[in-house]
Simulated assay, not measured.
Amino acid sequence: MAKLVEGDDPTSPAGTSHKGHRERLRSRFIEAPEALPDYELLELLLAAAIPQKDTKPLAKALIKRFGSFADVITADVEDLKTVDGIKDAAAATLKVVREAAIRLARAPVLNTHVISSWDVLLDYCRTAMSTLPTEQFRLLFLDRKNTLIADEVQQTGTVDHTPLYPREVVKRALALHASAVILVHNHPSGDPKPSRADIDMTRQVKDALAGVGIAVHDHIIVGRKGHMSFKSAGLL
């Protein structure tokens, strides 16, 4: 027979105290969600995945391990599970939040004239990529009216390098009947300044796409410290 641990039974004194704390936390969130510190927001999220457990210590452990709410939800699943108490259900719950944030930010960009909605596009790119622990290369494909027709992650790399193959970019752009492409990648270091390799790779992709009549509108690098546009910097 399984042994009950204090707090497992919601009718026990410990369970009643825990339930009351969670209800008060929910009420505070409903009244002023922006007032909750990162660990309390995590505590509420984790409560959905681990309802029978006091999740405050676990939330604080995640903040200590990763640094902030944003860092926790963008961490890799396997890294999350290195924190004692985080299993598949809790990790999935955290990743659902990240995916929801990305889709909310992407919704105003889809099927719109990207060039005239540039600030919205930048907000989306920062939401999707600026806090990622490793480099990711995203390609935004546009039609003749500069409407976004596809948004795809092309490559995921290491903390400081992501390979991008011009031939694969050309192949995908032709398959989508794209007229232009915007390149986007992140710098986990936080500094969006392009490296020599970034500049050389951009030139190679631009030349390859130009050979089939497809333009590169821009290459955007995002990081915690901001973003950088190759076009604005005169690098395209």
Results as ranks from 00 to 15, higher is better:
Gly85His: 05
Ala150Ile: 01
Lys3Asn: 08
Glu34Phe: 02
Ala101Thr: 10
Ala210Gly: 03
Ile199Met: 13
Ile86Gln: 10
Ser27Leu: 14
Tyr124Gln: 04
Ala107Met: 14
Asp88Ser: 09
Ala173Ile: 05
Arg196Tyr: 07
Glu168Gln: 14
Glu6Asn: 06
Met228Phe: 15
Asp160Pro: 01
Met228Gln: 07
Lys206His: 15
Thr11Gly: 03
Ser229Pro: 04
Gly157Cys: 05
Leu121Cys: 01
Lys95Leu: 11
Ile115His: 04
Ile63Cys: 11
Arg167Val: 12
Pro13Phe: 04
His113Glu: 07
Ser232Val: 05
Asp123Gln: 10
Asp123Trp: 05
Leu139Ala: 15
Leu174Asn: 08
Ser12Gly: 02
Leu45Arg: 08
Leu174Asp: 00
Asp8Cys: 07
Met1Tyr: 03
Thr16Arg: 15
Val169His: 01
Phe137Asp: 02
Pro108Val: 10
Thr131Val: 07
Asp207Ala: 09
Gly211Ser: 02
Asp84Trp: 06
His21Pro: 00
Ile115Ser: 02
Val109Pro: 00
Leu46Pro: 01
Ser27Val: 12
Lys95Val: 03
Lys3Val: 08
Gly234Asn: 13
Leu148Asn: 00
Thr156Ala: 13
Pro163Ile: 02
Leu122Asn: 03
Ile73Arg: 01
Gly20Ile: 05
Met228Ala: 13
Asp54Ala: 10
His113Trp: 04
Ala233Lys: 03
Asp38Gly: 15
Arg98Gln: 12
Glu23Pro: 00
His177Lys: 14
Ile149His: 00
Ile102Thr: 04
Leu80Lys: 02
Ser189Ile: 09
Asn186Thr: 14
Asn186Phe: 12
Ser189Cys: 10
Glu78His: 14
Lys53Leu: 11
Pro108Ile: 09
Ala47Phe: 04
Asp207Pro: 00
Lys231Leu: 14
Asp151Glu: 13
Ala210Glu: 14
Ser232Thr: 08
Gln155Asn: 15
Thr74Trp: 07
Ala180His: 01
Val222Leu: 04
Val77Arg: 13
Leu176Cys: 10
Trp118Asn: 02
His227Tyr: 13
Ala178Gln: 09
Gly223Asp: 04
Pro37Trp: 09
Gln155Cys: 11
Arg24Glu: 11
Ile199Tyr: 01
Lys193Met: 09
Lys64Ala: 10
Thr82Ser: 15
Ala49Trp: 05
Ser189Leu: 02
Tyr165His: 11
Ala91Thr: 03
Pro13Thr: 09
Ala47Gln: 12
Gly67Trp: 11
Arg144Thr: 07
Asn111Gln: 14
Asp76Gly: 11
Gln154Ala: 15
Ala101Asn: 07
Val83Phe: 12
Leu80Trp: 13
Gly226Met: 09
Ile220Lys: 00
Lys145His: 09
Leu46Asn: 05
Glu40Pro: 06
Ala91Trp: 03
Phe230Gly: 05
Gly213His: 06
Asp76Ser: 14
Glu99His: 08
